[in-house]
């Protein structure tokens, strides 16, 4: 089989999650010039918001419901946005002001990741306790969820298609277009581009550079949180779910060149497709060669790592730096 519809739908959800995460990671990198190693754990916090919504809104009783999305998308945007804002205001900005080297800033983000995962673990312990001791037997069934829950059983379907396969791409398109309009059509968005390009000049013109950077971090965190809501529909809930995912997120950002939001989104999407279809076709080929069923889903990050290595060694500035006009005309796609 050359194309598999279900695989394509699953990939749409997963790849748009990576698109959102790579785009928002790129935003924090443009602003603060430090790769945020806690970024995928931002998404994990968003994922936990879904479990909390499933519990508090009683969705565990009623079954699949749109409430999962209505409630957890805004909730995760605000909560994770606030986490990202605090990371910038309390940790990264003071350290950068003190002139700490980039190595120091990176290890600080690794420290934040450890703290966030610790907090998620504490929350997971709390939730397990609450679920276990509940008189409600439906709720007691959720006891394994905080550390290994498949929340996709609570998401609705649209004509047989899981909502995440449609909402994911929709969210990515809306936020990319929204970002574009915000940055080019609004005064504050223009000020954001100005402050990122030349903070000194922006400061002398009376632009509040610190406010601009704070807003950027909040939005980046919020987008990562919403990506986490979609992400948890494609995988298992766990406090350390971000640790392997960060490989794919960095791959997407590096493919995009870590310099442009649009290309960050494209990079994330491409890496998502590369991983999913790479695994799928490798399985088919290895299966045909060995005559056995081969399952490689757990090794999808191999393709991301490959993308990072190839990109850094071949085109370190990412896809954004390539001369697309020339490439298209070479390929005969444009005259």
């Amino acid at each position: 089989m050359v194309l598999n519809v279900q695989l394509f739908l699953d990939t749409m959800a997963y790849a748009s999650v990576l698109g959102l995460l790579s785009m928002s990671l790129t935003l924090t990198y443009i602003v603060s010039r430090v790769p945020n190693f806690a970024h995928a754990t931002f998404a994990a916090i968003g994922s936990y918001m879904v479990l909390i919504v499933v519990w508090l809104l009683g969705i565990y009783k009623t079954g699949p419901s749109w409430g999962v999305y209505y409630a957890s998308l805004p909730l995760s945007f605000i909560v994770v946005g606030a986490v990202a804002l605090l990371q910038y205001l309390i940790v990264l900005r003071p350290l950068a002001k003190k002139g700490i080297s980039i190595d120091g800033l990176m290890i600080a983000t690794l420290g934040i990741d450890i703290i966030l995962v610790g907090l998620l673990n504490i929350s997971a312990d709390f939730l397990e306790d609450i679920f276990q001791q509940s008189p409600d037997k439906d709720l007691r069934k959720l006891v394994t969820y905080p550390r290994s829950g498949y929340l996709s059983s609570y998401e609705p379907t649209i004509m047989g298609v899981t909502a995440s396969s449609i909402l994911g791409p929709l969210l990515l398109v809306v936020s990319t277009v929204g970002f574009y309009l915000f940055l080019t059509k609004t005064k504050f968005g223009t000020a954001m581009r100005a402050a990122i390009e030349n903070p000194q000049l922006a400061e002398t013109l009376g632009i509040n550079v610190n406010l601009v950077y704070s807003v950027s971090w909040f939005i980046a965190g919020g987008l990562a949180g919403m990506a986490g809501v979609i992400m948890v529909m494609t995988t298992k809930l766990n406090p350390t779910m971000g640790w392997l995912l960060i490989v794919s997120v960095f791959a997407g950002s590096i493919v995009g060149g870590l310099g442009s939001l649009f290309w960050g989104a494209v990079g994330g999407l491409l890496v998502g497709f590369l991983e999913q279809f790479g695994v799928y076709y490798t399985q088919i080929i290895l299966g045909a060669l060995t005559g056995e069923t081969v399952s490689l889903g757990n090794y999808r990050q191999v393709f991301s790592l490959g993308a990072i290595v190839v990109m850094l060694l071949v085109a370190p500035q990412g896809l954004a730096s390539l001369n697309w006009g020339k490439i298209l005309s070479r390929l005969g796609l444009r005259r």
Binding site: T190, A191, R193, A194, E197, Q200, L201, A202, L205, I207
Partner: peptide
């Protein structure tokens, strides 16, 4: 040098100068 925002258009540069 660096006395204008190179990535912004001329109109946007003027708008930023009038930011406040």
């Amino acid at each position: 040098t660096d006395n204008v925002f190179a990535q912004l258009t001329v109109a946007e540069n003027l708008k930023m100068a009038a930011y406040t």
